[in-house]
Design a protein around this nucleic acid. Structure first.
Lengths: 340, 340
DNA sequence: CTATTTTTTGAATACGTATGCAAAACGCAA
DNA sequence: TTGCGTTTTGCATACGTATTCAAAAAATAG
């Protein structure tokens, strides 16, 4: 007896299992198999069961590419992150991937060095027909951002706002945080202060600064501003420079925790006691801020909530696109430790 | 005059530009267009120029999915990372993405919580027909790993070895590092030591430990071993416990820098002076190790070189698959600071 | 039970590219 | 020029799925 190869079970034939194979085994058409795996399509319960049983037996998985070729969309989320200086970088990445995995989405990771994302990175994402995009800690030109809107790809700016209100963004309420920190330091008796900014151009910085200075001004508290770069060394050197050139202020508000730790080490190096001589407040509440060596007072961003809101918005927009634009700002809270 | 829609330039027709459009404009066949964009295919210089000009004019980009549907391969690298406790996590991620971007590859990021990667994560990667896979800080069962070999998808274990020699891995030479650290501490006059392990099961830990104990034994130096979890709190608590239960050793070798910082803070809390009463050596040389608050002596892993070797291997194997297996071990170096 | 509406199904086609094959174009020598 | 070998090209088809449309089946009403 001569066996035709195509008569053998597909499994032994070392040929990728397609919907056609499943259809044959289940005794239905390829269309029906497709409908079982396509969310929203209608199939009777009877054929669904037959198909699933056959698929199980053969180990069938729909080919994502054939799928994307038709639907023009994938189950991939583009996640763009800037630099590595962002202290909650790993945590945010971990949470996004975990959340999306639970919903059947994969994460295409894009790293950018620039505050403004380059066109080539974006083209790549559009080429891959991603289902949605998250931009963390960076912005992009209006023109490029609009290309996503044209393609109806939902987009979220995470931890950064654009200067137009045509896009969805999720941030900590930096304005309010700046205010609260100012009030807190005033309540501690600080009579003059220094603000050390990270990247002056970012919306996060500008909001914090605005809130902070606003309250100081209303209390007639004198202040100075310095600019640094969101790194430990930046904070360290800026503090050294301040000590050389200026009188020591009653308190420092530093743009993020990493810089704040640098400031603390610089102050300690010059034997400035904290919180007796001066006080230091950071931002982010990274792990290290709680370590005994520092015990830094800081502002905690509601990361989990920020991530959740981002994911929820994206999934909803992927389901049906509205293009809703909103600047979401979530409150955080002050973590009062030993540096104030 | 009535215009047929299909006569209009494709651009205005709001219809994705395909190879057919380019072909029409260039006056060649779709096949020729395909051949221009398919590496290794043969086209005459004349048609190549015509095609590129037409493509440029229309803004043509080959559809990656249609492509993958046929070739069964993508320009995507699967990058699997475990947890976030790995201190060089962000840097490694950044470097991989940068390198691969330069070679036209994108990175699909997968996060895993387990030391052993789960089958579902892997199936996802195989579903996406990734061109290659990097597994950092984790292992996987032999059976799962072999499924990659069956699919001829090159695979690299980064910073972890498997216990068989059928796979390619890139690590720091942990055995040698353990030895060198032992010799270094002995040369500093340490008479008894404590080794604090992170995850005991990992190959990295076992190699370091083996090298370290080997040298101590040959010098008749007594030692003890404690197990922790690669976190700051772990190091902190382990050190506290040691101080409760034991005599203070002359030196600590701690499995990674984060734990070492915890150990230092715990020692300081109990007013143990470093390096006079005891000494501490970490591993990894993370940024914080160099900060004035710690000045930790540690072992620097040659991350850049490790990443380069990984990328080179993968690209070569993607080009033509040999299945070469080798455990690559690259030397690092001791960074001598103030804790010894 | 028949007539009518609703649901489910299968056949055929499209998505955009790569590729085997045969025809056409080219290069070169005589 | 002709003839022959070598490239280059276009045609047709395949990849694995979603989707339209008409036919079949099922459900419902009378």
């Amino acid at each position: 007896m001569i066996l035709n190869l195509t008569d053998l079970p597909a499994k032994m034939n070392n040929h990728t299992i397609t919907a056609k194979d499943v259809a044959k085994l289940a005794g239905v058409s390829q269309s029906s198999v497709s409908r079982v795996y396509f969310e929203g399509a209608k199939v009777s319960e009877k054929t669904r069961l037959k198909v699933i049983a056959a698929a199980e037996e053969l180990g069938y998985k729909p080919n994502e590419f054939a799928r994307s070729l038709i639907t023009n969309r994938t189950k991939i989320i583009g996640l763009v992150m800037k630099g590595v200086q962002n202290p909650f970088y790993p945590q945010v990445l971990k949470q996004f991937t975990t959340f999306f995995k639970a919903h059947g989405y994969s994460v295409l990771f894009v790293h950018t060095n620039n505050e403004e994302i380059q066109k080539e990175d974006i083209e790549n994402l559009i080429n891959y027909k991603v289902a949605g995009v998250i931009i963390t800690d960076a912005t992009m030109s209006l023109k490029v951002a609009e290309s996503f809107q044209e393609s109806k790809i939902p987009l979220v700016f995470f931890n950064r706002k654009l200067y137009t209100d045509n896009f969805f963004s999720v941030c900590c309420n930096n304005l309010n945080a700046g205010r609260k920190i100012a009030e807190f330091l005033i309540s501690k008796g600080a009579k003059d202060m220094i603000y050390i900014a990270g990247n002056t151009d970012t919306s996060t910085n500008q909001d914090r600064q605005k809130g902070f200075f606003e309250v100081l001004a209303s209390h007639n508290i004198p202040y100075q501003k310095f600019s640094s770069d969101y790194t430990y060394e930046g904070g360290y050197n800026t503090a050294l420079q301040i000590m050389e050139d200026n009188v020591m202020p009653n308190a420092f508000f530093v743009g993020n925790d990493i810089m704040a730790l640098g400031v603390i080490d610089a102050l300690r190096k010059n034997s400035v006691t904290i919180p007796t001589t001066t006080r230091v407040v950071g931002f982010d509440n990274i792990d290290m801020a709680g370590w005994p060596a520092y015990e830094l007072t800081t502002w905690e961003q509601p990361i989990v909530e920020m991530v959740e809101q981002t994911v929820n918005y994206l999934l909803a927009e992927i389901h049906d696109y509205t293009g809703e634009a909103k600047a979401l700002e979530l409150d955080g809270r002050l973590i009062d430790r030993q540096t104030t």
